[in-house]
Nucleic acid binder design. Structure first.
Lengths: 147, 147
DNA sequence: GTTCAAAATATTCCTTTTCATATAATAATG
DNA sequence: CATTATTATATGAAAAGGAATATTTTGAAC
């Protein structure tokens, strides 16, 4: 680099993407090292604590697109980590749930995530983290609804 | 959804990813509608305002991995938006620069990005945006260095 | 200066994502 | 209720992305 007065360096969307990327990099490496992709981690984590989500809810929760989720769910059903059930009241919809094995896998990963977050809080400071959490939550809530 | 007490809903890395995703969605749609991928937009935007970046610098700036950048640069060189030059002093390194056409393309997109950001600031409030910018910048600076 | 290690980029192969569209079910309209 | 529109998910071909490794060049150690 040389002249240094780049638009991107002050651009909010770039800061957001960069912050997300650098803050997640270390944990995502751990996730992959434990044998699951980030996409799979997101599916498992999204389902944990629910009675099941539809494909559409998973799509939104995982920040992915619908075909990608359908295929990831396919794979995880094949690995007996998830089940798929057609909704009897609306047979277009499909409910996805964790199997006991899926729960176990999710629990392991969430425990790691929790530890990682604890270290992050220790390093950055709880107060600042909370400021950030608040600001991010507001941004999320006020962002233009999709589609 | 039903029981609702999900780990992910309070998880900082998830809030970051989600905030980045929802805040960027609208603009990224515009970018794609104008015929370039988000990956290409990042390369063009990263180069604008520099005298050229190496593949490695682009990799880091674009939040991508090295092979992906090599391939994207290949494509853009083919479209005459970029040039590639081997560094004479260190022939392992490759400098990537915008051509005049590439500059023009970057300028258009940056103008849109700027307008989009202005609307975002108008909607959210400058004060809150600045709080966020500060917190994100600190997070980025304090995150564990990669590799 | 040879040899060995490290760094920067390219390449290969394989998985995943994406785009567009298809299919199926429900809702809305006349 | 028959028709049309809308919603939810699946599928298939094409593009992109990622992991591992190869290649080339530089730097270090002796």
């Amino acid at each position: 680099m040389s002249t240094e007065h780049r638009f991107v360096d002050g651009y909010l969307l770039y800061l957001l993407a960069r912050a997300s990327s650098v803050a997640s990099a270390e944990f995502h490496d751990q996730v992959r090292a434990s044998g699951v992709s980030v996409a799979v981690w997101r599916v498992l984590a999204s389902l944990k604590g629910t009675d099941g989500l539809t494909i559409g809810e998973l799509t939104s929760s995982c920040l992915a697109n619908q075909p990608a989720i359908s295929k990831t769910v396919d794979k995880l059903v094949g690995q007996q980590l998830l089940t798929r059930t057609t909704d009897p009241d609306d047979r277009r919809r499909v409910w996805v749930e964790l199997t006991p094995q899926g729960e176990a896998r999710a629990d392991e990963l969430i425990a790691r995530a929790q530890k990682h977050q604890d270290r992050l809080i220790a390093a950055i400071g709880l107060e600042e983290i909370d400021t950030l959490r608040t600001a991010l939550t507001r941004l999320i809530d006020r962002a233009p609804a999709k589609k």
